[in-house]
Structures are given as C-alpha cells and as structure tokens.
C-alpha cells in the first residue's frame, strides 16, 4: 500500500467496503495521529508549532486552510491531531512540538487508530445505531467532534460535513466497528 506513514503496513481494513442505498462506509487512508496533552499556558506556543489554533471549546475540531491537518478537542487538556502525512512524518511534528520548549506530552498514535468514513444521507442514523449521543445537526453540527461510544467500543467521532462522519477507533477494534456499521447500514432506509 502506498502510504506516507508506513510502506510495509497492511491497513487493518484493507479492501473492506460497505454501502447501502443511503450510506457509504470506507476505510480512511493511513494518517499521522498525535495524542497531545498540555495545560492552558502552553497552548499558544503549541498552536504556533502546528500551524493551527488548538480549540479551547469542547466538542470542537479545527482544520487548516489546506485541509490536510486538523486538531480535535477531546478534553480540557487533550487533543487529537490528524495529519494526512503528505508533508512530513510524525517524527517531524513531534520535533517541532518539542522545539517549543513548553510543557506538553505528544505521543505518536498513528498506528494505534484507524478510521472509517461514514458518508451519505443516512450517515448520522447509521452511527446512531451504536452511539448514544444526539447526532442531530443542532446538537452535533459540522466540525463537532467527541470521544464517545459505538456499540461496545470507544471511538472518536467527527462530523466533517452534514452527511459525513469520520469514526476513529483503535486498530484492533476496527473489524468490530466496521461490521457494526455495516449491519446498521442494512437497517437504515
């Protein structure tokens, strides 16, 4: 697989596809992921280093102008950075964060997670089969993101558009997540 973050690795959801008339399920391409923890006084320096303002508001994701890097608020001192890996490796990002000299923790979790793109008019309904949160556009608007639950597993969901969610889950749970969403897709009409 032609991947910027690990040429030899096999995607845990390789060749998996799921779709119904109203929803599409697609494994997301490999990406750089960094689990970032920091206190309030470090945020401006870290934001400078990644070229993106770390959101302070709960449930908020921010995307850069090119659309190739984003940060998701997970908790008051915790973010998930996702980068498509076209402009350098995880180590480059970690080094840039380290150069700030401010107190923080940045861990490369690129291969701990994988993601499933849930698209189409029934995307929210399919997710709602296993996610207890209110996924209406009012409660969960575009660029809302949250760590939450899908069936028996923990996931991070991010609404990237009205009808598109990114579901980040741990690699070893991805088979379960994909099967769960595929089953749910059959029930939604």
């Amino acid at each position: 697989m032609d991947s910027p973050v690990g040429m030899e690795r096999i995607h845990p959801l390789q060749n998996r596809r799921g779709a119904s008339a109203h929803v599409g399920l697609t494994p997301a391409p490999p990406a750089i992921r960094i689990a970032l923890r920091a206190g309030g006084d470090a945020l401006s320096a870290l934001s400078m280093a990644i070229g993106l303002d770390l959101p302070r508001a709960p449930k908020t994701a921010v995307v850069n102008g090119d659309g190739d890097r984003s940060v998701l608020w997970l908790g008051p001192d915790e973010w998930l950075l996702i980068d498509d890996g076209e402009n350098g490796e995880a180590a480059d990002l970690l080094a840039r964060l380290a150069e700030t000299g401010v107190l923080h923790s940045a861990v490369d979790v690129s291969h701990r997670n994988t993601a499933i793109m849930v698209t189409g008019e029934a995307a929210a309904s399919v997710l709602a089969a296993g996610c207890p949160q209110d996924l209406s556009l009012k409660a969960f608007p575009v660029n809302a993101c949250s760590r939450t639950v899908l069936g028996k597993i923990e996931v991070v969901i991010w609404r990237m558009a009205d009808d598109m969610f990114r579901v980040e889950c741990w690699r070893s749970f991805s088979d379960y997540a994909f099967a769960f969403l595929s089953e749910a897709a059959k029930d939604v009409r």
Partner: peptide
Amino acid sequence: MLLIHCPYCAEERPEIEF
C-alpha cells in the same frame, strides 16, 4: 438512559460514557 451533565464538556451526555 440517564443524562449526566459533564462540567468540562459543558453539556448533558449519555450515562454510558461515564
């Protein structure tokens, strides 16, 4: 399902997240 208000997320969230 019980909804619990998380003071950090500043909203009510479903019980099974807690």
